[in-house]
Amino acid sequence: MTVQQFTDALTHHFPQLREDLRPGVRPAGLAEAERHLGQPLPPAVRDTYLACDGQLDVVPGVLLGLRWLPLDDVVREYATWLDLAGEDTGLDSRPPGAVRPVTFSPGWLPFASDGGGNGLAVDLQPGPAGTAGQVITFGPDETTRLVLASSLPAFLGWVADQIEAGRVTVEGNDVRLNGATSFLDAARTLV
């Protein structure tokens, strides 16, 4: 799966959302982000951001209502969340053991946000039952961390499949999957 499948689905079904996608980041921008993050980006994340650097506007969020963060915003979100990192025994994951029970991990790269502190991240330090590079939910309202896809390209491919299957609607600034008002709420029933 590539970002192209996702952008093609937007072009065909929701061109108004496609217009909000930014062109790919330049290699120098990737190197700068990696310097700030203190770690290299996995090839799948690098390739995705070389093809498309998130979205321009906050609303509507092109990722089923969530804003796809440009790489500069990924770095800012990472720095903000890193200050809040720590163990939290009240957290679990689905599947069990796939995501470490922490408020935030230095191995998480936040790439999508609901604007209220919750979002999606690429997990580079998964739990014992997880896989490096998996896409997970996180944030104060996400007490059960969900694994949504094996990688960022796989997640974008899944979103494209939902669009192509007619499960996504867009009305003004409201983007919904199967009629749910929040993708993160809907995800709890999908996994």
Rank of each mutant, 00 (worst) to 15 (best):
A149R: 02
L152Q: 00
S150F: 09
G130F: 02
G90P: 02
L184N: 06
R76K: 15
P95N: 13
P42C: 10
P96C: 15
E32A: 15
A98P: 07
A187I: 04
L21V: 11
L41Y: 09
F111L: 13
A33V: 11
R67D: 08
D185L: 14
D185M: 15
E142R: 02
R188C: 05
E34W: 05
F14L: 12
V168D: 08
S93K: 00
G116C: 10
D57I: 06
Q4P: 06
L156V: 06
Q134K: 00
E32C: 10
I136R: 03
P140I: 11
G107L: 00
S151M: 12
L91E: 07
S182L: 09
R26W: 10
L66V: 02
M1W: 14
D185I: 11
H12W: 08
D174E: 14
L82Q: 09
D161W: 08
T169Q: 08
A33Q: 08
E164Q: 15
R100M: 10
Q5L: 15
N178F: 06
E164N: 13
G61L: 00
P60C: 11
N173E: 11
S151T: 15
F183N: 02
T137V: 01
V75Y: 13
G29T: 09
T143S: 10
E32M: 14
N173L: 10
V168Y: 03
T103H: 05
V170K: 08
M1I: 14
A31Y: 08
T181N: 12
G117M: 07
L56W: 12
A149L: 11
E171L: 14
G86E: 07
L37K: 09
G24I: 03
D88T: 12
F138L: 13
W108G: 03
L30N: 08
G117L: 03
G133P: 07
W68N: 05
A121C: 09
V62E: 04
S151W: 04
L17R: 00
R46S: 09
A187K: 04
T2I: 12
T89Y: 07
D8H: 02
D185H: 13
G97W: 03
T169R: 13
A187M: 04
R94A: 13
V59Y: 07
T189C: 07
A186G: 08
H36I: 14
L66C: 06
W108K: 01
G130C: 06
R188P: 03
A44V: 10
A85W: 01
G38Y: 08
G90H: 11
G119P: 00
G157S: 13
V168F: 03
A9H: 02
L21K: 00
L56Y: 11
G29N: 14
L41K: 04
G54Q: 05
V175E: 06
Q162G: 00
V45R: 02
D114R: 02
V75C: 12
R26H: 13
S93T: 04
T181V: 12
T11D: 15
T103V: 14
G117Y: 05
A31W: 11
A132V: 06
T2F: 09
T11Y: 05
P140L: 11
V74P: 00
